[in-house]
C-alpha cells in the first residue's frame, strides 16, 4: 500500500469533490470546480454532440451541460432534490456536469492513490485516471475532465437533432 504507485498526484495532498452517480463515487479535483448549483431545466441544443444535454443560463453566462451518467456509458441522471450541476472550468472551457448527488470534499494524499484497474473494459473507464482507496468504504474514481471532454467531442451527432429527453 505504501509503495503503491501514485499517478498524477505525487506526494502532495489533493482535494477531491466527490459525486455519486449510478451507485459509484467519482472525484474531481476541486481546483477545476467553479461552483455547484441546484438542478435546473436544461434547454436542449440541436445539432450538438450527442453527449451535450443542452445549455443552462448561469447568470452572465450560458454554459453547455454534460450528464455524468451518460458520459460514463450509463443511464442519464434523474431529477431529484439531491441532483446537482457542478460547473467546471478547464482550459478556459466552462461547462456543467450533471451529477446525482454531491457527497463531500475529500483530502487524499499520494499513499491512497492507485492506478485505475487494468481491466478497463467497462465503458467510460478511460475517463478514470486514478482510484482512491478508502478503508471500509467504496473507492473513489478520480476523473480526468480532459478525457471526459474528449469523449463528449467524439460522441456522434444524434439521429434526432436533440438528445433524447430523459426526465
Amino acid at each position: 500500500m505504501a509503495a503503491s504507485s501514485a499517478q498524477n498526484t505525487n506526494d502532495v495532498t489533493v482535494e477531491l469533490a466527490c459525486f455519486g452517480v449510478n451507485d459509484q463515487t467519482y472525484g474531481v479535483d476541486v481546483l477545476q470546480i467553479r461552483e455547484i448549483v441546484r438542478w435546473q431545466e436544461v434547454t436542449p441544443l440541436p445539432m450538438a454532440p450527442a453527449l451535450i444535454e443542452g445549455v443552462i443560463d448561469l447568470r452572465a453566462n450560458v454554459v453547455p451541460v454534460v450528464d455524468l451518467g451518460r458520459v460514463l456509458g450509463g443511464e442519464a441522471i434523474e431529477e431529484t432534490t439531491e441532483a446537482r450541476i457542478a460547473v467546471l472550468e478547464v482550459d478556459d472551457m466552462v461547462f456543467g456536469l450533471r451529477v446525482a448527488v454531491a457527497v463531500d470534499v475529500l483530502s487524499v494524499d499520494a499513499s491512497q492513490v492507485d492506478e485505475p484497474p487494468a481491466l478497463a473494459t467497462q465503458s467510460g473507464y478511460d475517463a478514470v485516471r486514478a482510484v482512491v482507496r478508502r478503508p471500509g468504504e467504496a473507492p473513489v474514481m478520480v476523473l480526468s475532465i480532459e478525457q471526459l471532454l474528449e469523449t463528449v467531442y467524439r460522441s456522434a451527432k444524434p439521429a434526432s437533432g436533440f438528445a433524447e429527453e430523459r426526465v
Binding site: T43, L45, N61, D92, F95
Partner: peptide, 16 residues
C-alpha cells in the same frame, strides 16, 4: 449571451 466553450458551438445558433 454566447454559449461558453467550443464544444457546444452549433451553426445556426448565435447564443442563448
Amino acid at each position: 449571451k454566447p454559449i461558453q466553450g467550443p464544444i457546444a458551438s452549433v451553426r445556426g445558433i448565435a447564443g442563448a
